[in-house]
């Protein structure tokens, strides 16, 4: 599917809930090929539906979820791609959303994409995000029982000695 068509399909389905869209065309340095990387900024309440909509094209590949502390909010970016299995057919599709720290809830996508569990558990422990409906919310890379969130830049983050 052409990236423009994909973007239009998302805009038709979700309207204003898609706040911004950007399509980067990554050109090969050999000058013979390029591939699209799509960046969606969306409201957190449509994430689950957006992933379901993406699945209607092809069951997507999820590389990981990246995230950072913005002060009052936490930003998450879901790095998907579709079109794999087809020569030069893969395009990257990223969903970016923000959750307020006072209410850091977002719906888990593990019911749609079971392989998202590792990435979601990592965001729980490192950023203190809460995923609603996640089958297993324990720490994964950090010790069980560790309460600090190392990627947070506030008082719930790790202190000096951890970073030295």
């Amino acid at each position: 599917m052409e990236p423009k068509g994909l973007v239009e399909s998302f805009q038709a389905r979700f309207g204003q809930k898609i706040r911004a869209v950007r399509i980067d065309e990554i050109r090969s340095n050999l000058g013979i090929y390029s591939y699209p990387v799509i960046w969606f900024e969306i409201d957190r309440e449509v994430l689950h539906d957006a992933v379901a909509h993406l699945i209607s094209f092809q069951f997507p590949h999820l590389a990981t979820i990246s995230g950072r502390d913005l002060g009052k909010e936490i930003e998450l970016t879901y790095h998907f791609s579709i079109g794999y299995g087809q020569r030069r057919g893969e395009q990257s599709v990223n969903f970016r959303l923000r959750v307020p720290k006072a209410d850091p809830r977002v719906r888990s996508i593990c019911d749609l994409v079971p392989g998202a569990l590792t990435a979601e558990r990592e965001k729980i422990e490192f950023l203190g995000v809460q995923f609603e409906g996640i089958p297993d919310s324990r720490n994964i890379f950090l010790p069980y029982g560790m309460k600090e969130h190392p990627w947070r830049k506030d008082e719930t983050g790790v202190k000096g000695a951890w970073l030295e």
């Binding site: 794999y84 299995g85 057919g89 893969e90 990257s92 079971p114 392989g115």
Partner: peptide, 25 residues
């Protein structure tokens, strides 16, 4: 496919994911 296997682990199960082919660089 659903557990996001990659590389030879995925291809050995028939999931044709190979970035060198799908999104060559």
């Amino acid at each position: 496919l659903e557990l996001m296997a990659v590389g030879p682990t995925a291809r050995a199960s028939g999931v044709k994911k190979d970035i060198r082919v799908d999104q060559p660089y």
